[in-house]
Design a protein around this nucleic acid. Structure first.
Lengths: 204, 204
DNA sequence: AACGCAAGTAAGTAGGTGCTTGCATACGCG
DNA sequence: CGCGTATGCAAGCACCTACTTACTTGCGTT
């Protein structure tokens, strides 16, 4: 049963490159180094195979987390955004094809939306916590702010590859987004670096 | 030569629904109420037809504008964002398919990127103008802010339809995004209703 | 009437695509 | 050994897809 795994991986790659329509069973089989018949014997149909590849793919994602007790919003958010960006970037090809074909294959919708949901909820919860701790402007529009950060991350991860000129350099981007974001929700700089200091300082 | 127009419109619709791969010449011809042969006689090939539909489509877009001389940033930006959102939303199906197939059809890239570029440049220029008029924080990260607003608009226009729960109600969204955005770049509320009241400012 | 031209009709080609069938081969295990 | 199970291989089926060819029809101009 080694084939199963190889087929799944190959299918993910081919699907990412060509989309569902372009991902022919012949191509997938070749990429897996497996006979096309094996593919049908193992999964039954092309549709079932694609479900088998998208399902786990959306399940086994371990999303970045934000601390329940914020201490250094700028650092924490930067780490979070950096990790999320990498996450989304890794699934970009799959995502972008799935989005295009979502009306024809609604079963892929969950895969396309899960990450976004998690990101949004995580940010929202964190923001509320900041507010209740008096670390963020209590009048800030938490919902809209969360949507904007989510949109920024998705947009960067997805569109940077074909419109690179407009984006900040990839290594600066997360920090700059976060700094803008902090402005937006009224977090004063160094609000509590004094509270808990770590031995390491990060570069500005 | 009535056929030409009808084929172009039909092709746009079918392409929007099914993507390039899914938009078969038979489907397009049927949608146009035209014989399939006519399609080939008029455009030569499926690829040429699709170029003919995407080219003009990206050219005849009249993008929303922002005034060269800002007077009421909140109102002006809200109008701008509202219009842009509607614009992008209208091309969403086409956009989303094109993005998915951009690697296989690079000639569609310009279509997919043009709007984004224009939006970004317009916002950036406007922001700089605000800064130079002292209406926005001179230390604001204009580039990052512009990217974030662009990302927000694209994300809302594209993803709202399959993740509606996380977005603000459609009629509130632009105003709320803009208010967050103003926070981000340090535009004080009524920054210049007061100016108007107090005295005349000289023209730059 | 004669002509040109846009469009339709019918048929076909060459290749791709999802999926099936029948049969041969290898490996592991009692 | 014998048997089941996984896999490979060759061929094929029915259908789709882009595109072509050859011929016809209708309409406007001269």
């Amino acid at each position: 049963m080694i084939s199963r795994e190889r087929i799944l991986e190959a299918a993910a790659r081919v699907y990412a490159r060509h989309g569902f329509r372009g991902a022919t069973t012949r191509l997938i089989a070749a990429e897996a180094g497996v006979n096309e018949v094996t593919l049908f014997r193992t999964f039954g149909s092309k549709g079932a195979l694609l479900e088998a590849v998208l399902g786990p793919h959306s399940a086994n994602v371990t999303p970045p987390e934000l601390p329940a007790e914020p201490t250094d919003p700028e650092a924490e958010l930067t780490t979070f955004v950096t990790a999320s960006l990498e996450n989304v970037r890794a699934m970009r090809p799959l995502l972008v094809h799935t989005m295009g074909e979502i009306e024809e294959r609604p079963e892929a919708a969950e895969f396309a939306c899960r990450g976004r949901h998690i990101f949004h909820d995580t940010i929202t919860a964190y923001l509320r916590r900041l507010q209740s701790l008096g670390m963020a402007n209590p009048d800030a529009d938490v919902e809209a702010a969360a949507v904007m950060l989510t949109g920024t991350v998705m947009s960067d991860a997805i569109a940077r590859s074909f419109v690179p000129e407009v984006y900040p350099p990839i290594e600066e981007a997360p920090a700059r987004y976060v700094r803008c974001f902090l402005q937006m929700i009224g977090v004063k700089k160094n609000a509590l670096t004094s509270v808990k200091k770590k031995s390491r300082t990060r570069i500005a």
